[in-house]
Write a protein that binds this DNA or RNA. Structure first.
Lengths: 351, 351
DNA sequence: CTGAAAGCGCTAACAA
DNA sequence: TTGTTAGCGCTTTCAG
């Protein structure tokens, strides 16, 4: 019901005294124009305040842009599954912009499979990459390659260096530890707290949760002199071993009132508690994976700190698509997502 | 890098044996076509699974669509300010789709101003309405009018009936009460809890927080027999009166360990506590308004339950725009937003 | 190196 | 009632 105003390529062309075709060439650096015209056009862009119409653009493009997504494969209900969910949502959202998301998944316990995913990506070709890195030494040369080839990329979950990435979406692990400790301290001002950590199967992996644990220690030692903490490491793979470890701990420390599971598998601790119930134990876990949410709803987990995994993944897709199609970078390069607190009673819409 | 497939009006036209113009007419019910062609076209739509290209559409439209937004005016940092923030975000997001959002604000203490806003809206004309209703008896005939005129509308914050609205975005107040009580019960299993409520200035207003208070009572009486609650009503407008009321309460009940402020103005309770500090008082409030967040960060509020106000507002705009421009309804009609829990240590990115 | 022109999917004005 | 056609802002041939 009102006219649209907005400066177009045609306006630029007129202002610069050239044709639309020429404007397009300098805008996209497709070569075949002189320095002089380049300047004229760019000046016109400045003066008129040109902003491209993304929709017209994607309509005119006969070909799609491809985003290659190199992320770990996953079991149902785990961390990378949640990420996958968000990536899919993002893919759906950018599809009408003419951007297609293709997956190259790898086994995060296998360096070889990562190499393979990388090769595939490079072979197929793409206009942008979303990288969920696990192996630093393997990822580094890869992003170097991307930079050479002028392929934009965004990190998800973790980032390797600060070099040429368009953006990063992930969590501030230290802060997540502070929050977990804070919540626990609200429930319990003094006494014993148990920290349950994942034992490292593969010492070569980067263990992102060390920062989290450090934060918890820091918080308690600064704010809660009355709290004593103990750590146990549990075996992710073997339930029998887990059981023995935990039995031993609880035998020695029956006075424990809270437990913080610092890795992403609070549901495994819940499994233990189902068999060996403890009265009034406050259990705090991390990450809104399906399994953890189930343990929160039906089991013995009292609260979960979440980083909105699907959102981080979704945002990574959208921001990369906007960069590729709309020439615009995200407002902030490093995006540490909001940490949420979940209990039995605010799961609505998540599960 | 791959061809786009997707069925277009042209495809429909060919399939139905008519022209694009005719297809457009039946698609938009612009009249001037026979029943027979209508059927042919609609069948083609079914068979080919046609979905309009929203971007092509908004490009071809020389005129904008207008969304009229009838919501309460606000003071800085209060509930409707947060809503406004989200509405603005939404407006920015749908602008490239050729949708403009226009505001008609009213004073929520004045029925007359609401009437005026409604009249303005009707006079100016629009393609859709977002309504934040306060006066039920005034809103009802208005939405009746909208239905007659075939103008789609969505409710925000509260809804009046379930009639012709495209969607509703708001909170489940009862659930928010349950959550608040649950969180409080995590901190304190027994003893005294103070409920602070807003005293009604205007008894004609719908008080949405009664459900919340009811839920708190229900939760405690079901799960926490050891907890006793007391309610006080405080005067929103007059600080001196507030002070007196609260002084009197604390004199009588020095044993109180938690307080729940059930309205949206926890910051006013914080103001009181700054002048009359209480040791170890757990204070829970509602809503992530700027003032409340400040009281959480720097003051005596321990936790805030939030309904993601900006998000509810933003979604209302986006869903209405999609309905108007993209012919598609939101997936769920009634959207009760996720309830968040905020503490000092997860304000990042919100403030 | 540059310009002209066709066309992406859709709407809207104008003929018929 | 229906078909035709000219754009919307942009990219992309294809000739110069």
């Amino acid at each position: 019901m009102k006219e649209k105003e907005s400066v177009t390529v045609y306006d630029l062309a007129r202002a610069a005294g050239v044709s639309q075709g020429t404007v397009d060439r300098v805008l996209h650096n497709r070569g075949r124009f002189s320095e002089a015209t380049r300047d004229k056009v760019l000046r016109a862009v400045e003066e008129l305040g040109y902003a491209p119409n993304m929709y017209a653009r994607s309509m005119a493009q006969r070909s799609k842009r491809i985003i290659a997504c190199i992320v770990p494969d996953f079991e149902e209900g785990t961390y990378w599954d949640s990420n996958n969910e968000g990536l899919m949502e993002g893919a759906a959202e950018v599809a009408p912009l003419g951007v297609e998301v293709r997956f190259h998944r790898y086994d995060y316990t296998s360096r070889k499979s990562f190499k393979k995913a990388v090769e595939e990506t490079l072979d197929e070709g793409c206009n942008g990459v979303i990288l969920g890195p696990v192996f630093d030494d393997l990822s580094l040369p890869f992003v170097g390659r991307l930079r050479e080839m002028n392929i934009p990329f965004v990190y998800i979950d973790r980032k390797i260096g600060n070099d040429g990435d368009v953006a990063f979406y992930g969590t501030d692990f230290y802060q997540s530890g502070i929050l977990g400790a804070h919540v626990t301290s609200l429930v319990q001002q003094e006494g014993t707290v148990l920290l349950v950590a994942l034992s490292q199967i593969e010492p070569s992996f980067a263990d992102t949760t060390v920062d989290r644990r450090q934060a918890i220690f820091d918080y308690f030692s600064e704010h809660c002199p009355g709290i004593t903490t103990y750590s146990v490491e549990i075996d992710t793979e073997n339930e029998a071993v887990r059981e023995k470890t935990l039995d031993a701990f609880f035998a020695e420390h029956p006075e424990v009132r809270s437990a913080i599971v610092t890795n992403t598998r609070a549901y495994q601790f819940d499994e233990y508690l189902r068999k060996h119930p403890k009265k009034n134990l406050f259990v705090l876990g991390y990450d809104d994976t399906r399994r953890n949410l189930k343990a929160l709803r039906d089991g013995n987990v009292s609260a979960i700190i979440t980083r909105g995994i699907p959102l981080q993944a979704k945002n990574s897709v959208i921001s990369l698509a906007n960069f590729i199609q709309g020439d615009r970078r995200p407002e902030t390069k490093d995006n540490y997502l909001h940490l949420g607190i979940l209990t039995k009673h605010n799961l609505h819409g998540l599960f």
